[in-house]
Design a protein around this nucleic acid. Sequence first.
DNA 1: GCATAATTCAAACGTTCGTGTGATACGAAC
DNA 2: GTTCGTATCACACGAACGTTTGAATTATGC
Lengths: 211, 211
Amino acid sequence: MSSTEDTRQRLLKAARRLFAERGYDGASVRAITRAAGSNVAAVGYHFGSKEALYKEVIRAMDDPLAERIVALSRDEDTPVRQRIRILLQEVFQHLWDNPDQTRFMVELRLYRTEWLADLAQILAPITEALIRLVQQGQSEGTIRAGDPLLLAMSLMSQPVYFMLVTRKIPQGILPVEPSTEAGRAVYLDHMVDFALAGLAPTAGVAHGRGS
Amino acid sequence: MSSTEDTRQRLLKAARRLFAERGYDGASVRAITRAAGSNVAAVGYHFGSKEALYKEVIRAMDDPLAERIVALSRDEDTPVRQRIRILLQEVFQHLWDNPDQTRFMVELRLYRTEWLADLAQILAPITEALIRLVQQGQSEGTIRAGDPLLLAMSLMSQPVYFMLVTRKIPQGILPVEPSTEAGRAVYLDHMVDFALAGLAPTAGVAHGRGS
DNA sequence: GCATAATTCAAACGTTCGTGTGATACGAAC
DNA sequence: GTTCGTATCACACGAACGTTTGAATTATGC
């Protein structure tokens, strides 16, 4: 039983990477087992089927990010807007360091809606943490009025969208190359500023129906 | 030659739908030709290969939206912020009515980076139109300072992200069902408000490093 | 050391994939 | 009516797919 867990873990790791890189259909069982350094039959033995392996990858995806975010959202020593700033930065950084996760989630969202519930369950704590923060800011008066869930969605849109648009983009398409730490900071800073600006208490111009 | 163009068009239409629904690998040539009501060999005859068909679907994707947006961005009779409002609404509506397009573009972005240049070329006019609008607003003083491209990216993030998150989502996950016109308006209005708030001239709270 | 279970492996299963081939159907030109 | 280029068809090819099988190998309990 010693190396069993090793094989299982190696399979999960390889599967997550390849599913993210090539999608469910594009990542063959043979390619996954080859990447994991084991036999084709290993998937059948350890998980039962390719589909079961995929669902197991979803299940194993609740990672340190969620608890970090929840902890951050409860850190009452830091001002709300500052907490949001840190939170968005950390989400972006995490997504940047784990591109597999974003791609995997997007594929799940687009092509595997039958397993979306599994994903929503994993993301729930993050959404709740964001909502909590927004509500706190609203009661303090540092965040403008509005449905907390909708505002939380707009907040999440910034790190997710910028990650999708800037990660592994061919050189020359974006004016600032996000491949360097410095270049990435440009997108990161802007993304946070825009999100916080969108939360700012009504500035006189923004709200209502007109311009 | 009479029904030739029909078959070609039917193939393109079916291919775009199935590529969007199932991804490149998930949409088999047989499924596409079956959906188009023609023979398996039709793809080989009209396009040469499955890959060539895929690229042709990309090429045929520059649609009315782009020119509509460019025209709107140049409509000097409407205030800039109002133009942006309309523009974001129309982008969202268009993406909503053509979910194929978003899914197709996302797959291209994630799994087919070798063909990304073809996509960037098609999206260029839209990006340029947004940048032009932002710059005009900045020179008027109705839009806050900042890199116009980055601001344009944040603007686009709203309709795209909300489309991705709300379209064809299983019932019960979102508190407001986006399947009805009225429910959808909730997301649409919020998305536009948030985007415009993010553009608002510095309100005293937003900018800088801290909360 | 020996039985017993757990794990890995090579090989093969039937199916589906993208593509190629040759025959057939069709319409226009003469 | 025959010819010719275009379009569609049924069909077969080899390769890759997910899965299964049964033997070989390794670890565990006594």
